[in-house]
Write a protein that binds this DNA or RNA. Structure first.
Lengths: 254, 254
DNA sequence: TCCTGTAATATGTCGGAGTAATTGACAGAG
DNA sequence: CTCTGTCAATTACTCCGACATATTACAGGA
């Protein structure tokens, strides 16, 4: 069920501007609108301080009802991207008000060409958080955590990282580490950053095959956590993050 | 904060159970609804997996229109607290889907009696992030950053930390450090955590006067950053966080 | 027992009407 | 000329009632 009714192209001849929002399956209309506006803001198409058209005008331009449009605006407001006030309209907030760590915002940021500087910031944050997470995991993991990590590692060995199974195993491995930290805040944060950073992996893969075998580095992290060596775990994870940074940088920077 | 009386709101009278949502000035109705439901979820009043009443029923119970109720639900959905599906209703998502680092979610978490374990998690994360931020600030600060920090420090000396001016100066000081990191992601994250952790300061203050003079510790951080000594900056900030943790723990745990 | 089609139900979407609040302009006082 | 208070216009906000759509649950048949 792609396009609803092209029957209204009569008005296309009239204004030629009604850009209907594409909505995939399982995706609500207001979600699609939020995605469209969110990516537009994150890509810089709307700059902080800009004022969006009035509700009625914008909703009509998108060919949606005001209800759907407003619900989308509430989503953007909840994520700190915009702010609406009577008489003043809806304006894009300054960048430091954005919830840049919100998973959906991160997805919007990586929907188009991601800002190099922002990717650098995320890697920097990851280099801070992930080793600390590994340290905590080494201190708090139990038998069950170790088993899950071992299984994931085995799956990574079987399937290469180029396959979906392999990437799933990689995610499982890192998630197991996060679970072992017993820290919900750290867990949520690290999962978001990890997912976002892995978006860049797609570009990297597209450029060329992975030049390095990632298994040994993962094994080093696993051994340190399993043996309860906190310092070694933080160290090994730091190496892992650094390598990912190098690969991504060389793939993006040229 | 809110005088939300968890009492059973004995509405045995004829008003049929309309528990009107209180909405302060500058606070939209849907925002008030989101706040009410958000705090209810964060406080455990609704557990993950629970299904909220139908839109029509719930909206009528709150004595608001379905539109306003729906916009509030969109806000909660955007923050990962709930998920709505046709015929299935709106259910509370598992805790690991919540955007715990969203400023508004943090505010909701601290609206009532905050969960001890969660506070512990936040302090742990802060102990990871803040020293790293101080390290980066020491490496990247410029003349202007140093001037702002120095001014804030002077203001902290003039006004005690018990006054609003003093706390504002403290915030300025820490914000100056974050700005000096030149890392947007780190900035947003640290600002959220810092604000949330400072909520606990209110309880701490209420319990007893601050037992320690915080100025010398702040000076140590400032000197290290100003002189560009990254390791010393991280160290001094670590001390600062540890001291805050001790104070809060003794005030909360006894 | 399993599968398939059908019906019920709650969310999703729509359009319009009326309310409330903020801003910007204007007039008057200092 | 500047400042302050009031007023009006504009805009988002809220409410309402109806219809569309998707998903679940149940009943019927293989």
């Amino acid at each position: 069920m792609g396009q609803d009714r092209p029957s209204t192209d009569a008005q296309a001849a009239e204004n030629g501007g009604s850009v209907k929002v594409a909505r995939g399956p399982g995706r609500r209309l207001h979600g699609a609108i939020a995605h469209k506006l969110g990516t537009a803001i994150l890509s810089g198409q709307y700059a902080p301080g800009d004022i969006l058209s009035g509700e009625v005008a914008f909703a009509e331009e998108l060919d949606v009802s005001r209800s759907a449009y407003r619900e989308a605006i509430q989503v953007l407001t909840a994520k700190g991207l915009v702010e609406s006030r009577p008489k003043a309209g809806t304006r894009v907030l300054p960048r430091n008000r954005w919830n840049l760590l919100d998973p959906e915002v991160l997805a919007w940021a990586f929907a188009g060409e991601p800002d190099i500087q922002f990717v650098r910031d995320l890697f920097e944050l990851r280099a801070i958080v992930e080793p600390a997470a590994a340290r905590l995991a080494a201190q708090r993991r139990d038998k069950n955590d170790i088993k899950i990590m071992k299984d994931a590692l085995a799956a990574m060995r079987r399937h290469t990282l180029a396959t979906e199974l392999g990437r799933a195993a990689d995610r499982d491995f890192h998630n197991a580490i996060l679970n072992a930290t017993r820290n919900d805040a750290l867990q949520v944060l690290s999962a978001s950053i990890g997912a976002a950073v892995n978006w860049t992996t797609q570009y990297k893969q597209r450029a060329r095959a992975l030049p390095r075998n990632p298994i040994p580095d993962h094994v080093r992290v696993f051994d340190a956590i399993a043996s309860g060596d906190a310092a070694a775990a933080a160290d090994a994870m730091g190496v892992l993050v650094d390598l990912a940074l190098e690969d991504t940088a060389s793939a993006m920077g040229g």
